[in-house]
Design a protein around this nucleic acid. Sequence first.
RNA 1: UCCGGUGUCGUUCAAUGGCAGGACGGAGGACUUUGAAUCCUCUAAUCGUGGUUCGAAUCCACGCACCGGAACCA
Length: 763
Amino acid sequence: MQESPTPRNFIADIVATDLESGRHKGVVTRFPPEPNGYLHIGHAKSICLNFGLARAFGGACHLRFDDTNPSTEDLEYVEAIQRDVRWLGFDWGPNLFFASDYYEALYEHALHLIRTGFAYVCSLSDAGVKAGRGSVSEPGVDSPYRGRSVEENLALFERMRLGEFEDGAHVLRAKIDMAAANMKLRDPAIYRIKHAPHYRRGKDWCVYPLYDFAHCLSDAQEGITHSICTLEFENNRELYDWLLARSVVDCRPRQFEFARLNLTHTLLSKRKLLELVQQGLVRGWDDPRMPTIAGMRRRGYTPEAITAFCELIGVAKNNSLVDLGKLEFCLREDLHERAPRVSCVFYPLRVTLTPVPKATTLVAARFPDRPERGTRLVPLSAELFIERADFSEAPPPGWHRLAPGAEVRLRHAGLLRCETVEKDADGTVIALACSYHEDDGTRKVKGTIHWVSAAEALDVEVRLYDKLFGADEPTALDPLNSGSLEVIQGCKIEPSVNGTEAGAHFQFERHGYFVSDPDGTPERPIFNRTVTLRDGFAKVLAAAMPGAAATPPRVERPRTRAAQGQAQAELPRSIARLTEPARGIAEARRARGASDAAALVFATDEALGQLFDGAVELGACASITGNLAANELRGLLGAVGVQGLRFGAAELAELVGLIDEGAVTNTTAKDVLAHLIAKGGSPRGVVEALGATKLAHGELAAIVSEVVATHAAEATRYREGKTALLAFFVGQVMRRTKGQANPAELEPLLRARLVHRIHPIEG
RNA sequence: UCCGGUGUCGUUCAAUGGCAGGACGGAGGACUUUGAAUCCUCUAAUCGUGGUUCGAAUCCACGCACCGGAACCA
């Protein structure tokens, strides 16, 4: 197994930054499944991310069961999930946790929230709560129970726990804001009454915490540093932070979201997969057609293939739909190294050889391109089976296989020519009589076919699997692919596989990768097709014969990034569109000398506008000030906001003055701005401290020469015509001079220096 | 409609103001006792419009498209 490299994705970057800055001493992540179903390939992505991060940064990843809903959870799932995570190659060590072990502590946290006035018992019905929540565009209304006293809430919550009420009679709600734009903050329920036995806690409890409440506190309890979840929880983050801020906890985990996996032709929803199982549409959670880890394992996937896939697809916040072909690529890549080759004929056609081959046993490599990895014995005789599909009486153009009078190579054996074709009364080919020659290496034969010796061949069952859904993006409503399972009895396989235990991988040459299924026995194995080999001939065939589309035409999904954006507003028009007072303000600042774009910004950001006004009144050039404030300053501001600024109009005016008189470059000005925001001070002072006045011409020329000399290869490519590299050189010089080079001087200088070399001194 | 998020080759992920790059796919070729594998070559993208800047995928503005959010599920 290869060493896992440090993952490169935006979350790994955050972790690395947090470690460097000392924000955290170590990383602790967690994989938090709810034990209400089996893990699938989408979970594998999350497992690889969480455990991979811990592994890469020398931290820990906890396995925590988020079991807060007794009515859907089960021990069977707990066991299956542990089995699957372990099989994928990850180890949680001693860090196995259950939210259900935290019920007591969680209850205390709830009491604390009530005592501090941040939670109340609401006695509205389910429907009543819903009605009061409002809608995405309308605020909700306060529950009539929102004003209950702490004492009353405490007493009621205690009685809830004691089991004095029916399910749904009361619910504990966080007291936040019924008008919040984020609906997750409209007094969410955090505890509900549920008279249901829990698979681990039995009848200990009849109130259970809800996800948002239990999750953040469980994270804090375990000292999680980075709580990584999928995009649909983005709106929950505010609630996550709200709850932790009001609870007594030792640490403050932060939540980060990434895009969950979507795979073409694959259903990745635990709920819908459960339906397939319950309706008997598949054989179970581990049906080899299922995208569950258990199903994939039985199908013949390897942990290495799955983790390589997760590495390949990366981690981002982009909603994406990954082509199933990528998974298959990783699978084939791994199996190519792992699966010894054997010969298996699915639909046998009898062939008799004359003369009878002299050799009765051949020695064939298990891995033909890696002979050192061993051999197997293959019997040879005058009676063989070959694949029916490898013979054609009327071969299409480009056919390399057997046909009347044609010659092919028998894999590992000699050459074969079809002499006569034997048919039954219906005209079906039932046998072939062929002449046999040892291979003297003089003849070039295009095709090679696989075969087995008839007498020694084993009869086996082979199960061919295909996609469960034909649709690119299936929903549960889509019909199952009727050809997703094909069972072939009476396949003929070489005897070397006798004694194979379940779970052994093979490549059936020219067919694909197969794995022995637990339904079989060592004496009578059953094989599942894991994945076919890439089939170049199928493409040739499809191209040659238009009607026979081997691959169905790809359905284009509606392009998300489709560029039909028009109706763009020109700036003056945007100003015109503003409300009357705002337009007046914008116009006034435009009149004062701000550009259209800047004026528009100042119309919506009054604080920034006033900063602009102040600087201009102090005599700063209006256009420079406007652009600097609206474009550069605004970008640097971030969460600080104009109010939080450590400098005012005077400093801005001073900086603009420096630009205006040519003392500093624009790049430097931006650096100064960043400096002022972070530390305050005066522009002149910062410029001095940075030593950032514009470079003298002589100095610049020297640096240009140096840069060109140290990048000789790029200079050559530039002279050869890659003129885009001029930007590269400008960049190098700018970097070297920390942005103090005068751009107006730099470019001609650089151009001259670069060309100069091509015509070395003429005289 | 409100809030949050996302837009880069056909797909997926990079580029953290300085040469738009990798992988998968596709096309072509070499090699081949698996029409496999391997090797080589090619293909092809910054959602739109303005602005700032010597320089913009990246910063600013205005738009557009798509995804998520109104469970006593997670």
